[in-house]
Every structure is written in C-alpha cells, then in structure tokens.
Nucleic acid binder design. Structure first.
Length: 603
DNA sequence: CTAGGGTTAG
C-alpha cells in the first residue's frame, strides 16, 4: 500500500489491495501530520484493516499523542484537559490506536477529553475510531450517537462513511460486523432508508458480512414506510448474497405482500420459505389476520384465526386486538365488545391497545358516554392510558363543543406522566377552530400553536392543515394563504388537504382569482385536483350562481376521469334551484339517480 | 416482525 502527497494542505491516502478489484479510500488528512517526509512515498501496511497512519507518530503531533497516552495510562485526567485545544482528528485516531487492546484507556480518553470539547470538528475517521471503541466496550447507544453524528455531517457520502468505518478499526477488524449492523440500524432508526439501502449495497459490493438482523431491520424499515418495491429488491439481494433468512424476514415480507394487497401470493411465498427451512409462526398468523381485518375481510380473518389451532397455535393478544379493530372498522361495535369478553375468558388481559381500539371507535361515533365508560374501565383494570387514549378523548370532546372537558383531559394526561405531542395539540386546536363562533376560541387555537412551537414540538402536515382550516373558518383566508406560502417556503410539501382547504376558504370569501392561482400551483407540483377540489370549485360557482362555469367544471372533471359524486350533483341542483332553473335542476337530479346516487333532500 | 390516535367539500 502506498501513500502519496497530492498538495500542500491535504494528503490523499490511496489504499490499493492486491485482490481482484482495487478500492480507493480518499481520506483527508491535515498535511501537518506528515510534514516533509511525505514528499517521498511512504510504505505502509499491506493490511487494509490496519491503521495506515501509524508511521505518523514520529511527526509533530506525535509528541502530543505520547503525552496524552502517558497521562491516560497514569490516570492523570486533570492534566489531560490542557491538551483539549490541541486535539485534531488524526491525534484522536492515533491515541486510540495506541490504546489498542486497552478499552478502559480508550474510553477514558473519549469520555474525559474528546466528548467534553463541544466545538470540536471531527472527521469521519476520528468519529469512526471512537465508534469502534464504544462498540467493543458494548456501549452501543454511545456508538450509535456517534454514528448519527457521522451520517448527519453534510457532504459525506455513504462510501466515505463505510470506508471510514473500515479504515479506523485500529487493527481490530473484529468489530466490523457489529459496527456495520449498527450503521444500518441507525440509518433505519433515523428514517434514512435510501441511505441505509445504499450503505447495505456498498457493504455487500465489497463482500463485507451483513447480519440477517441488520438486513431485517432494513427490510422492516422499508416495508413500514411503504417502499415495498425497494424492499423486494433488497430481499432479492439478501437471498443472492447467501445470507441465511429467518422467520423475521418471512414475517416482514408477508407484511409487505399484505400491504400490497397481494394476499394470493402469500401461500407460494410461505412454501418457498419452507424450502429454505423457515416456517410461519404466530406473528405470521397475526400479520395476516391484521391485514384481512384492515381490508374489512373479517370472514377470512376469522378463518385464519380458527386454523391456527391446526399448527398448535393459540390466538394471542395481537390476534384479538386485530380482530377487535376489524370489527370496529366494520361498524360492529357490539361484536367487538363480545370479543373483549371472550379474550378475558381465555385468560388474556386486554392492554392499552385493546381499550384504545374500542375507545377510538366510540369516539368516532361521537358516543361520549361510551368513551368515558371505556376509559373508566381501562383505569379500573389498571391499564395505563397513553397518548392515543387521550388524543381520542380530547378530539371527541372538543369536537362536541365540550372544550372544557377536553381541557380537563388535557391537564389530566400529565398526571399519567404523558407529555402532549403534536397530535394532542392538533386535535385541541381543531376543537377550538370548530368552535370558532365563540369569541376568543380561534385565537386560543393559535395560542396553542405558539405553545407547541415554544415547547419544541414539531408540527406535522396535519397540524399545518388544521391551522389553514382555522384561518379559513375564522373568515381570514388571506392569512391561510400566507401560511401555506410560508409552509412551501420552508420546504414543507402541502398535500391535497392543504390545497383543498385553502381553495375552499378563498372561494367562500369570493377570492376566486387567488383560488385559481393555487389550483394552478398544485397542478404544477404534480398534485392533480381530486374529487374534493372539483366539488369545492363547483360549490363556489354554484353559490355565486355562475352555472355555466359550474357546468364547465363538470365537463372538465369528467374529461380528467374524475367521476362526479353525490356532492357534485347536490351543488349543481342547489345552484340551479336558486337561479330558478328548475328544468336544469331536474335534469341533474335525474342524472344523479341514473348514476346510482341517493338524492339529498333538496326537493 | 404482528394491534390502536389527529387534518379537506356539503
């Protein structure tokens, strides 16, 4: 392996292996470290895993390294602190290499000297050297914090991250596998799935070992956010790499099939996995039952639940929770409560999710007393309510103009050690906005927004949409207009709900021009107007009695493949009625009936 | 790896 000096400031280390392929690591190292000796080619170790800069210890910083190592060995932590300002990434790497084999020493150095310097600028390699020490010391969360720091540095490519992790093992490449696993896990946890996938691919292309656990965490992350296509690609690459799959892989991919609605493919996938010696388990069954329930296919869900016994499996808490949820979503609330009794009878204890499922459904039905009853039952059973429980309660009470009671829950939740999150603030704000006719309520909603921001709680798109709705409801659509503008300026991408809410608000205030500007904008951004957009516009024209334009909109939506629905016709009929065009009104009424929509009670 | 929460028209 050879090292060349490229320019005065920095040196490029070119690591050349004598294998089938060459790989190049470009590591930027301050030139001071090499001084004039670097003008010549320096022979360094052939082993790419071995710290390539050990020869540098004879150079200027080497004295510092010696002093630090000496003081570390003698436990002179206080005298160490005086060196803090002179630290640089390569000194850190060198010290840690000198500590090789003595993890206590390495940790002492990092904890007492490196991590105390707050403004210190690390390189990928210095971070990596510390990561290896932490991983070897089994301080995984500390290692992960540093990995996060490394991957969040701007302008650092995945290749550089991987190479840094490989190059700074200080001769101990035995930690590589653990570090690579942690790297992938960290990408997944940081929701950087593209980057995680890229890191996985780089590692595989260099034939590094990636554990099935790391693979599963990547696959699970991809499926969770709905990147099913990419999950299958990665899955194929895992299989091709010869990595041994396990039941977690199976379950993740069954979930992927379910999310794609490919229930028919599950069977063949399962037998394919059986061929690899991997068999479906409890989680597989629960995954399938949950998926069928979500699709409203309760018959199939029950069938699978009953077939569990053939494999010697008993329905678990997850199974029951999925079934209860399925029944609730189908409107079969009473049956769901029967299942709750059944699970008690088979000796399973309902948990927070079980109660929340029933609570959410009674809230959805605006059944306040039932919601309170479920909540009380939950408390009596000693099951702790969580943010989901409180968000449902606060939502239903504020929606039903019982803001006082909503605020009681808002205060109560703190007694359970719960800190309000963006959802809690959103439902409360929504409640105050809905009750906007009460003086001061809308301003209270915006006060809550300020409180939320002040507490460092990040608003989501839903929160923003609620604010837009709030402005529109209080008759201030120009403020909503400004707000959406600010959202876009800050890089938050609005969705259909944002645009539709604002467009509706603008049209209600007869601000037709601005409304159409936004329609153009959403189209330009690739968000095609949906049925609600068309209905909103339709309503606007019908309200203004501009019936020709309304029919133009009707033609356009049909042209665009969007079928008018009951609301579309209701607007058209109402519009014609108020214009005394009864013939036209009847014409649309008939057309609506022909299309199978139940008429409103306009006549 | 499997279960539960908030936002748009009328």
């Amino acid at each position: 392996m050879k090292l060349f000096l490229l320019n005065q400031k920095h040196t490029l280390a070119i690591l050349r292996t004598h294998e089938r392929y060459n790989f190049i690591t470009s590591l930027l190292i301050p030139a001071s470290k090499f001084s004039f000796r670097c003008l010549q080619t320096i022979e360094i170790s052939q082993n790419p895993y071995k710290e390539p800069f050990s020869s540098a210890t004879t150079l200027p910083d080497s004295l510092l390294v010696e002093k630090i190592v000496f003081n570390l060995k003698h436990g002179n932590v206080n005298s160490l602190l005086s060196y803090q300002l002179r630290l640089n990434p390569s000194v850190i790497v060198d010290v840690l290499c000198r500590c090789n084999g003595d993890l206590q020493l390495g940790q002492r150095f990092i904890d007492s000297l490196v991590l105390r310097g707050t403004n210190f600028k690390h390189s990928s390699v210095s971070l990596s050297a510390m990561i290896h020490v932490f991983v070897r010391s089994r301080r995984l969360s500390d290692a992960q914090a540093l990995i996060l720091r490394m991957i969040r540095r701007s302008g650092v490519s995945r290749v550089e991250v991987v190479e840094a992790l490989v190059s700074s093992t200080c001769g101990n490449c035995g930690t590589n596998n653990l570090v690579f696993d942690l790297l992938i896990r960290t990408y997944v946890q940081a929701r950087k799935l593209r980057e995680g996938t890229e890191a996985f691919r780089i590692l595989r292309s260099k034939a590094y070992f990636v554990s099935i656990n790391a693979c599963n965490s990547l696959l699970g992350g991809l499926v969770k956010i709905g990147w099913i296509e990419l999950a299958w690609e990665v899955h194929r690459e895992i299989v091709k790499s010869g990595i041994e799959l396990n039941v977690y892989t199976l379950n993740i991919m069954v979930n992927a099939l379910c999310k794609d609605g490919k229930f028919g493919d599950v069977k063949s996938f399962l037998s394919e996995m059986e061929g690899n010696g991997v068999y479906a388990d409890m989680v597989t069954y629960n995954t399938l039952i949950g998926a069928y329930c979500r699709e409203g296919l309760l018959e199939e869900a029950f069938e699978i639940m009953n077939s569990m016994a053939d494999k010697g499996l008993k329905p678990s808490l997850f199974t029951y929770n999925a079934i209860i949820n399925g029944l609730c979503k189908k409107g079969r609330y009473a049956r769901a409560k029967e299942i709750l009794i059944e699970m008690l009878n088979v000796g399973l204890s309902p948990d927070t999710t079980t109660y929340n499922t029933l609570l959410v459904e009674s809230c959805r039905r605006d059944n306040l007393s039932e919601a309170e009853q479920i909540f009380g039952e939950m408390l009596r059973q000693g099951v702790a309510p969580d943010l989901v429980s409180f968000s449902s309660l606060i939502a239903v009470f504020s929606r039903s103009r019982h803001l006082d009671q909503a605020m009681v829950y808002f205060r109560d939740m703190k007694k359970f050690g719960l800190v309000p999150d963006n959802v809690i603030y959103t439902v409360l704000m929504h409640g105050y906005c809905r009750n906007g006719n009460v003086v001061g309520h809308v301003s209270e909603a915006f006060r809550l927004w300020d409180v939320m921001i002040e507490k460092g709680i990040k608003p989501t798109l839903v929160t923003c949409n609620t604010v837009i709705k709030g402005y529109c409801r209080s008759g201030d659509s120009s403020k909503a207009d400004e707000f959406l503008g600010r959202m876009i300026a800050k890089g938050v991408a609005p969705d259909h709900i944002s645009y539709n809410t604002l467009i509706n608000g603008l049209l209600r205030e007869d601000n037709t021009d601005k409304a159409f500007l936004w329609i153009n904008k959403m189209e330009k951004d690739g968000l095609l107007p949906d049925i609600i957009t068309y209905n909103v516009v339709m309503n606007g024209f019908c309200r203004q009695g501009r019936m020709q334009e309304a029919e133009l909109v009707l033609r356009k939506m049909i042209e665009k493949g969007i079928n008018p629905d009951r609301s579309t016709y209701t607007a058209l009929i109402n519009g014609h009625v108020t214009q005394d065009n009864l013939n036209e009104a009847f014409r649309f009424h008939d057309e609506m009936l022909q299309r199978g929509f139940v008429p409103d009670d306009v006549f």
